[in-house]
């Protein structure tokens, strides 16, 4: 992988992410005694998402949106866990994140509904108009990208691309670390099995 990001930054990000992720996992494991494999998977994914989002210190829209989404997905229990987890991760900024997250959750839910309605309308109108193909294509793809990037529905084009840039960089870090951990765990599992 060609590392376009400055080495130091990406490495420090990786370390930070790993620390936070493991702390998150800790909290999940404390709260859940018996989990199915899917529960575990969700827990791992959510903790990883929160960890990568928290590495951005709520500076970016997508990270805030991720936090909000995860807080909204899992009800009060998970929210509490997240709150605790966030507190564990970052004592200074956690409170603002938590207080923000609740508001954002409500806002994002409401906005998401609104935007969905708008998007549907605009699609139909665009199709009816049949304007320039290239512009249409770009618009269509921008819409798709907005759906992909967390919190992208509320962004304009400039900030969307900026956020996408940041999001991709973060995802790369996340995938990188997770893959390494998975590989390590795999080896360990294999070795354990071998030793058995």
């Amino acid at each position: 992988m060609k590392s376009r990001m400055p080495e130091n930054r990406s490495e420090s990000m990786k370390q930070e992410f790993l620390k936070k992720w493991i702390k998150g996992l800790q909290i999940y494991s404390k709260n859940s005694n018996k989990m199915t494999i899917l529960d575990r998977k969700n827990a791992i994914k959510q903790s990883a998402d929160v960890a990568i989002a928290s590495t951005r210190n709520a500076e970016t829209q997508w990270s805030r949106a991720v936090m909000a989404r995860i807080a909204s997905k899992n009800e009060t229990v998970v929210e509490k866990i997240l709150g605790r987890k966030v507190l564990l991760v970052d004592k200074n900024k956690s409170r603002s994140i938590i207080t923000c997250s609740k508001k954002i959750v409500r806002r994002s839910i409401v906005n998401a509904h609104r935007k969905k309605a708008r998007v549907v309308r605009s699609i139909s109108s665009v199709v009816e108009d049949g304007s320039i193909i290239a512009k249409k294509m770009v618009k269509k793809r921008t819409r798709v990208l907005k759906r992909l990037v967390p919190g992208g529905e509320q962004m304009d084009e400039v900030s969307l691309i900026k956020e996408t840039l940041d999001y991709i960089a973060s995802l790369q870090v996340q995938v990188d670390v997770m893959r390494n951990i998975a590989a390590a765990a795999e080896i360990l599992g294999r070795t354990e099995r071998l030793s058995f």
């Binding site: 996992l25 494999i37 791992i44 994914k45 995802l171 995938v175 893959r179 951990i181």
Partner: peptide
């Protein structure tokens, strides 16, 4: 990338019988 995250988390969930394995 998003699918990879999904996949990797699934993989980890499968590999690790317990969550606190990593911890």
């Amino acid at each position: 990338l998003q699918r990879q995250v999904e996949f990797l988390s699934m993989k980890l969930a499968v590999i690790n019988p317990r969550l606190d394995f990593d911890v």
